[in-house]
Design a protein around this nucleic acid. Structure first.
Lengths: 242, 242
DNA sequence: CGGGTGTTTGAATGGCGTCAAAGATTGTGG
DNA sequence: CCACAATCTTTGACGCCATTCAAACACCCG
């Protein structure tokens, strides 16, 4: 994987690895996935990831950077509905999934590649690309699971548990895409973004994080999280799919 | 519709009306939908709606009563993820939708009819039943939208707004299935269930409801909600799909 | 070096949960 | 039909979790 990292910014490598880890892929499928793409696009932190020309560019794959689906309420409050990592897919708003109709914002600098062509190829030959297709639907299912987890977090957990379970979710997702070194992973989220996702104020996020650090559960530095006590953190989090 | 209500307990009439209101259905599709079913099953309040024999009986349609998808955390706290009304579908847990893998509990007495056979007929002849199929996928999309709304509620709204937007959601859903008379509709939910759905304690639900009544926004009596000031309630709720 | 963004801390307020107990309602069996 | 149990609703008191306001502090970048 080391050598392939060079291609990470113009290929679907992360997606391929995620799919392969669920279902062994055929040679033809690998070929389609690793074929170099040229429809890359860059977004600066804070900008919206949209489909400017209606040409399907919203249907894409995140190859680097973090983004989030979010809802801005009438009062101006921002609720982050879900976090998008490298290797995550952004679907077509017109395709009948509510998740894909929501505004998507780049949280850090983000680079994407279009997947409209790829998707139509996969859907056009259901036999040849059956493993990819089933893998894609499994990824969707994972998105839905995270949505449910988030409801449980917001509805029934106090702030420390919310943050703990959220960090563990991000940890697990980063592990799958190979972003974990040791027991630490990058988390380019400001405390304001964390608050926006978890329904907490910036101030309180800060205080709770400090408590978690004081309890030697996690450490934070330079945009990286280190999980110092995985067992303790997990027993604090106690979430459904944890 | 009056005369058909007699059949409501052994047919898919409510579902048919929901589908027809989105997409005009062909005669053949109407025929399939209104064909009498015999796989009815009854659940008492509080019992779990499951698939006892693995014979697909979990895949069903609610014809009467209310149910909820819920998650019971390790500490015993119950979080209601979504409410299921008559005319709502329960999917197959093995079919790749996280929502259908969650425990479902009857909130009141519930009657269902199996839909496994129906679904395989629809999926087996995509041309003949295309409007039904697209309608079913639209219903799924609506489920997903409600999930997102719920995240916004739990994450960014104080108790009065949560209850207001929740009541308005139920009102809109009841209207579609013809359960609204005047500006009131049945709501067989205890305040404890409301709290479980909205992430609030029973006591606080009670207090906030009283405030809403004092403000002449809603009234409650005999398991029915009456919306006294729709505009005021909506302006309080301020939700994304409201 | 200065400005902007993000982090940290304090103090005060209030929303909401918890505990406890008393009505009100429903349903059930004698 | 009444008595009783069980469930649900309502109310008060109290305390904590979390928000808000405010300001100081660190960091990054031009």
């Amino acid at each position: 994987m080391q050598g392939n990292l060079r291609n990470a910014f113009c290929s679907m490598e992360l997606l391929a690895h995620r799919l392969a880890s669920m279902n062994a892929l055929s040679a033809v499928e690998w070929e389609l996935l690793l074929e170099p793409r040229h429809s890359s696009r860059a977004y600066s932190a804070g900008s919206e990831i949209r489909d400017p020309g209606g040409d399907g560019m919203r249907q894409s794959l995140i190859v680097s950077g973090w983004a989030s689906r979010e809802h801005v309420s009438h009062s101006g409050r921002r609720q982050l509905l879900s976090i998008l990592l490298p290797g995550d897919l952004i679907g077509d708003p017109a395709e009948g999934h509510a998740l894909d109709a929501v505004e998507i914002v780049a949280l850090s600098g983000v680079r994407t590649i279009g997947t409209a062509g790829f998707m139509s190829i996969v859907n056009g030959d259901a036999d040849r690309y059956s493993r990819i297709a089933s893998g894609l639907s499994a990824l969707r299912c994972g998105d839905e699971t995270r949505l449910l987890d988030h409801i449980v977090r917001l509805g029934s957990q106090p702030a420390p548990q919310r943050i703990a379970s959220f960090v563990l979710e991000l940890f697990a997702r980063c592990r799958v895409i190979g972003f974990v070194t040791g027991s630490s992973f990058p988390m380019p989220l400001t405390q304001e973004m964390l608050g926006g996702a978890l329904g907490l104020s910036v101030v309180h996020v800060n205080r709770v994080i400090h408590r978690l650090k004081a309890d030697r559960l996690i450490s934070l530095q330079g945009g990286r999280v280190t999980i110092d006590d995985a067992i303790g953190l997990a027993s604090l989090a106690e979430l459904m799919s944890g």
